[in-house]
Amino acid sequence: MTVDLNTLLAIVAMAVATIATRIGGLVLIRYVTIGENQKRALEAIPPAVLMAVIAPTAFVTGPAETIAAAATAVAAMRLPLLASVAIGVVSVALLRLLLGASW
């Protein structure tokens, strides 16, 4: 098992970029005072970021993905995380089979 030099460089570049983003917010709040508006903005960040990540998969990939995403969301209201994820995975596999592949 060898590590290619170009691959190693790319991995290090990705790691440096990722670490910069993870430290970035911590540095940022040292220089920005947190008032009422900043607090409201910060509170909206968690749901807004997660939603943005999943939106293309949930809404514009295909009917199988959209229905499975809805099923996962409904399941999440009543079931624990793992059961909801299992429902999502199984339903997307079945729906792709039934509706035909969208990829």
């Binding site: 990705m14 970029a17 983003t21 993870r22 917010g25 911590l26 709040i29 960040i45 970021v49």
Partner: peptide, 17 residues
Amino acid sequence: ALLVNIRHVLMSASIGG
């Protein structure tokens, strides 16, 4: 990686407090 993970700036600002 920088672009995909730029959300981490917001996440670390949020948890940082």
